[in-house]
């Protein structure tokens, strides 16, 4: 029930944003919020993995800081050209459970410094690293722990 309320409130907030705070479209907005909540329950049942709101700000801050680092690093490498690269593939053994947590890890790693996911299969993730001498595995593990906290799963 709380989760349903959370969703309704999130979609209502989203509508407020899209309407730029204008109040004249609230009827259409109400219909949109109901439709969005209904389809979200159908497509993503509340029983499945649940995001912990208390862990969300920490995760977002971690993500933003690291994606800025990632952008700066690759921009610096682009200026130096291919001599800045020591690329290679690295296989990581994941501690996160199957499903949403692993998929989120695979996608977010693509925006973290120096890594992009190549293949996720059987609890192992192969990544391409721009510089294999950097602590890729340690950074990936730090992200895994953040995601574990976000979903409230043991890792």
């Amino acid at each position: 029930m709380m989760q349903l309320l959370e969703r309704v409130l999130s979609f209502a907030g989203l509508w407020w944003l899209l309407a730029e705070g204008h109040r004249d479209g609230w009827l259409l907005g109400g219909v949109a919020v109901v439709a969005a909540t209904w389809s979200s329950v159908k497509l993503w049942p509340p029983r499945a993995y649940r995001v912990r709101l208390t862990a969300l700000p920490g995760f977002l801050a971690f993500f933003v800081v690291n994606s800025v680092r990632g952008g700066l690093q690759v921009a610096a490498m682009a200026l130096r050209g291919r001599r800045a690269l020591t690329p290679g593939l690295i296989d990581l053994a994941l501690i996160l459970p199957d499903g949403a947590p692993q998929i989120l890890l695979t996608y977010t790693l693509g925006l973290m410094p120096g890594t992009v996911g190549v293949e996720l299969a059987d609890g192992r993730l192969r990544v391409h690293a721009l510089d294999v001498r950097l602590p890729v595995a340690a950074e990936a593990r730090a992200l895994e722990l953040r995601i574990a906290a976000l979903f409230g799963v043991g890792a």
Partner: peptide, 26 residues
């Protein structure tokens, strides 16, 4: 910088890093 990486990096994997990360920060 993302476009520069696209032009200068040697393979599709490293070009991918350049475009995805630099353009998104941009």
């Amino acid at each position: 910088a993302g476009t520069l990486g696209l032009l200068r990096f040697p393979d599709v994997y490293s070009r991918l890093h350049a475009l995805a990360k630099a353009d998104n920060l941009g």
